[in-house]
Design a protein around this nucleic acid. Structure first.
Lengths: 222, 222
DNA sequence: TGTTTTTAGATTGTATACAATCTTAGTCTA
DNA sequence: TAGACTAAGATTGTATACAATCTAAAAACA
């Protein structure tokens, strides 16, 4: 049985992480020839990789003109966060209804680990990145809705992560973020779906409000 | 200035409509050679077209094994409707806040036209299809959120339409559907965002409930 | 007869070559 | 000097050829 990754697959995931980490910057050109020189092989698989990147909205292509790393305006980023508030609130509500007791216990254990790390003042920056993501991903999986999971984790989160570094979006204090996470899990453990949804919406809304403030400043500067 | 469509683009849209109309059935195989014989050209653009179909979740590909028209289980379709209820409810809420008075007037005019058509008992089946879609699309555009528009119209609706024919999903009586549409527009005209959202959710929820009933029947038959 | 192995065919993945289109630098003109 | 035009270069779109992999039908074996 062949689960051999094709070359196009490898290049695709390489570039994906490069973009999300900011090594390739928004607006930067990506040419097929360029990729051939960097990753080896021929143009055909590079072309496929670029198309897959386009499918995930990580690059924008115009016919005969080539591809560039996606470059979002504040307004477009706000649109994304608006959708994220809605979908992740929904995920949280469903998680409160559908997660097993065991899964909830795991989530609580995860937060205790985060708490220890913060108290020990180790990995402060870690919690902002991988830890925070891990929490959100688990919750979304807990919704038991595959399509929802795919839309959030497969489409929106790449873009969210990509811009998290550049704007101050989501740059919450680790301690405050942890407290909010704990409240959310409490609501889920109590099977209070409405409250869980509300708390998650607020948790994300802060970033959106921040974005809207930035947009207002930018508008005022003109 | 070149807005010349590439061959891959043409083939992509041809196949898209074929799938949505049901001319290509779920699970049916799509080979590159097959497309070459049907549309002309070489394998390269056919390959691209298939990749774009995969990006829209209209076909499923496995490496080295080829592509098939997507085939959803009832459970997967229910997941889609669950997300649709949420997103289109959101769109309706935003539309109530953001549509201009002129756009609302246009929407009202559209419904009056639908009413006349139904009273004249012309195009009953038309209203179920194009008319219903037109209404929903306009509302979604009214949310003024591009990302939301793209997720609903560009991703979910293809699959919804594809299965609308086959299951009895969304096979509402035209008159009842029209009445519900009218209530929704009334709420929007009154700028009552909460009510507009609630009404839209109910409007779609009926199809989801129907799906869940079918799933229960299927489960009981085992 | 049922199962496994083998082998031939078909299909996809990749490489390379050519044609169509766009981009950019340079030239010309007002 | 600013702007429009032109031509060379680079880049993408398409076609074809070959290699790697999968599929399925036939043969071998228990």
């Amino acid at each position: 049985m062949g689960d051999t990754k094709t070359l196009a697959d490898k290049v695709f995931s390489e570039i994906t992480t490069s973009i999300v980490r900011g090594e390739l910057k928004p607006g930067e050109r990506i040419s097929e020839q360029n990729l051939v020189e960097r990753y080896g092989g021929s143009r055909a698989p590079m072309r496929q990789a670029i198309q897959r990147l386009e499918a995930r909205h990580l690059v924008v292509r115009v016919p005969h003109a080539g591809a560039r790393v996606v470059s979002l305006t504040l307004s477009e980023l706000a649109d994304i966060y608006e959708v994220r508030v809605e979908l992740e609130g929904m995920a949280c509500r469903l998680a409160a209804q559908r997660m097993t007791d065991e899964e909830i216990a795991d989530l609580q254990a995860l937060l205790r680990k985060h708490e220890e790390m913060i108290e020990a003042e180790q990995g402060l920056s870690y919690y902002q990145k991988a830890g925070d993501l891990d929490f959100h991903y688990r919750l979304i999986r807990g919704s038991k809705n595959q399509r929802l999971h795919q839309m959030l984790c497969g489409e929106l989160y790449h873009l969210v992560r990509m811009y998290r570094y550049q704007t101050s979006t989501g740059a919450k204090r680790p301690l405050q973020a942890l407290k909010e996470h704990q409240r959310i899990v409490e609501a889920i453990a109590a099977r209070d779906a409405e409250l869980a949804e509300l708390l998650m919406r607020r948790h994300i809304q802060a970033s959106l409000t921040n974005l809207e403030r930035l947009m207002a400043e930018e508008e005022g500067r003109k």
